[in-house]
Deep mutational scan, measured.
Amino acid sequence: MQRVNMIMAESPGLITICLLGYLLSAECTVFLDHENANKILNRPKRYNSGKLEEFVQGNLERECMEEKCSFEEAREVFENTERTTEFWKQYVDGDQCESNPCLNGGSCKDDINSYECWCPFGFEGKNCELDVTCNIKNGRCEQFCKNSADNKVVCSCTEGYRLAENQKSCEPAVPFPCGRVSVSQTSKLTRAETVFPDVDYVNSTEAETILDNITQSTQSFNDFTRVVGGEDAKPGQFPWQVVLNGKVDAFCGGSIVNEKWIVTAAHCVETGVKITVVAGEHNIEETEHTEQKRNVIRIIPHHNYNAAINKYNHDIALLELDEPLVLNSYVTPICIADKEYTNIFLKFGSGYVSGWGRVFHKGRSALVLQYLRVPLVDRATCLRSTKFTIYNNMFCAGFHEGGRDSCQGDSGGPHVTEVEGTSFLTGIISWGEECAMKGKYGIYTKVSRYVNWIKEKTKLT
């Protein structure tokens, strides 16, 4: 034993070699072989497995989906700052455009905790909710729209109204504003409101030439003092309507412009014939205590009207009353817009006519005020429907199939267009061939041609 100890002390290297040989010859039971080890760690190889990531292109799944990435790591994937920024906006807080917040056709661009709407022409605001041009839906104005110097929408209202708090709607500024039905039992019968379409306001006024200088022999019209197929109006439903009495009662109609003036057809009036105007009328054979009678003290036909040349060209006249009318729910003026808007309103496509005229061709006159909704007829169809001249200051309205029309005794009465609950004068009943005849239409004086003249002559002093 002493000898062994001496050998170990003198030859430590020998001992180490012996131990190493023993270990190498022993069977290893701690580690699995290569094949079995792979069965336990069965993990798919990654895209760049075996390579240094710093030297390969980034992978979106590896960089940002398996674990949260930084902007720089995302930049490695896209290799483009702009594309990385677009991805980053949604990656950080989701897609803010998912709810489609942009209105009126706006395009949404996502941002971090926010979004941006790219608005089409005519709109602005956070969600493109603000109209900035009158060309689109009248700028959301209830009545009139004008573009300011910086191309912003400025709404306005006709006389007797003021802008509401929203700067879009119009509200009454006087007790009985024009064009409004205020009798409670008839307010439910107000005709369907007309909503502004998209309009090209630059070209809204037709490029028409008034044929002022045409000389033409007097034409022989049949029954051209021209509501057939209409309905009984309720008291106060058309408070701007008046009836004219002269040699015979209810020979023509008219509309209240203001307390002192009536507008009617020029062919209705004769110099030297006494005319009485009755406002607030409903049943011409009954006294309903809503009527107001006034005498006409002055007749002003349009300066281009000449019955000797043509009885229905420039067929418009103004009547001055001896005493002002007292405005109330049964006696209310009709609204008159400017030339541009009167023309736009007419193009809405349908209007209402009213009167006490004959209820059928050569038949009896109506006792109760009649009204009828009539569609506008395109000019080409209008011209083809008659052998008589249709001037540019006239328009056609009615039904091709016949059966409904204005008729004798309705002449001078109103053709009105309702705009968001307020009625505007767009025409004056003038003439036609018979009444409600198939293929024939009622012919009306186009008020847009005469609004400046009306307003100039009827100013209240």
Results as ranks from 00 to 15, higher is better:
residue 385 S to G: 13
residue 116 E to G: 05
residue 379 R to F: 14
residue 214 I to C: 10
residue 78 F to Y: 14
residue 242 V to K: 00
residue 229 G to M: 11
residue 174 V to D: 07
residue 32 L to W: 12
residue 255 S to N: 03
residue 427 G to K: 00
residue 254 G to L: 01
residue 290 T to L: 06
residue 271 T to L: 13
residue 331 V to F: 01
residue 182 S to W: 07
residue 293 K to M: 05
residue 221 F to E: 13
residue 309 I to A: 12
residue 12 P to W: 07
residue 147 N to F: 12
residue 161 Y to W: 10
residue 398 G to W: 03
residue 145 C to A: 02
residue 223 D to E: 09
residue 325 L to Q: 00
residue 435 C to F: 03
residue 2 Q to T: 06
residue 204 S to Y: 13
residue 29 T to A: 08
residue 417 T to K: 01
residue 357 G to M: 13
residue 157 C to H: 00
residue 258 N to H: 04
residue 67 E to V: 04
residue 264 T to N: 00
residue 285 E to Q: 13
residue 212 D to H: 10
residue 92 V to C: 04
residue 273 V to D: 08
residue 54 E to P: 15
residue 327 L to W: 14
residue 99 S to Q: 08
residue 260 K to C: 03
residue 153 V to T: 07
residue 245 N to M: 06
residue 390 I to P: 09
residue 403 G to C: 07
residue 350 S to W: 15
residue 407 C to G: 04
residue 349 G to T: 04
residue 435 C to L: 03
residue 257 V to R: 01
residue 357 G to R: 14
residue 170 C to M: 00
residue 293 K to G: 03
residue 158 T to Y: 04
residue 263 V to M: 03
residue 459 K to Y: 09
residue 31 F to N: 15
residue 452 N to H: 14
residue 425 L to F: 02
residue 214 I to D: 07
residue 398 G to R: 05
residue 121 F to V: 15
residue 20 L to K: 02
residue 451 V to R: 03
residue 324 P to Q: 05
residue 435 C to M: 03
residue 339 K to H: 08
residue 201 Y to K: 13
residue 458 T to L: 03
residue 127 N to P: 01
residue 80 N to K: 13
residue 95 D to M: 04
residue 343 N to T: 10
residue 306 N to W: 03
residue 455 K to S: 06
residue 8 M to T: 13
residue 77 V to R: 14
residue 151 N to C: 04
residue 237 Q to D: 06
residue 51 K to D: 09
residue 263 V to T: 02
residue 135 N to K: 09
residue 121 F to E: 15
residue 304 N to G: 09
residue 233 A to S: 08
residue 363 G to W: 05
residue 248 V to G: 12
residue 123 F to S: 03
residue 323 E to I: 09
residue 402 G to A: 14
residue 338 D to L: 03
residue 294 R to F: 00
residue 164 A to V: 05
residue 404 R to H: 15
residue 314 H to L: 00
residue 460 L to M: 15
residue 15 I to W: 07
residue 253 G to E: 03
residue 262 I to E: 01
residue 245 N to I: 11
residue 32 L to F: 10
residue 295 N to T: 10
residue 453 W to N: 01
residue 234 K to C: 03
residue 238 F to Q: 04
residue 294 R to S: 02
residue 185 Q to C: 06
residue 136 I to C: 03
residue 321 L to W: 01
residue 199 V to R: 13
residue 447 V to T: 06
residue 27 E to K: 05
residue 93 D to V: 05
residue 76 E to V: 15
residue 155 C to D: 00
residue 57 Q to D: 14
residue 266 A to P: 01
residue 145 C to N: 00
residue 121 F to M: 11
residue 417 T to I: 05
residue 148 S to A: 08
residue 107 S to W: 04
residue 335 C to W: 00
residue 419 V to E: 02
residue 389 T to V: 10
residue 71 F to R: 15
residue 216 Q to A: 14
residue 173 A to E: 08
residue 224 F to S: 12
residue 398 G to C: 02
residue 25 S to C: 13
residue 146 K to S: 07
residue 349 G to H: 08
residue 23 L to I: 11
residue 223 D to A: 12
residue 267 H to S: 11
residue 461 T to I: 08
residue 31 F to C: 08
residue 136 I to L: 07
residue 140 R to F: 07
residue 210 I to G: 13
residue 363 G to Y: 09
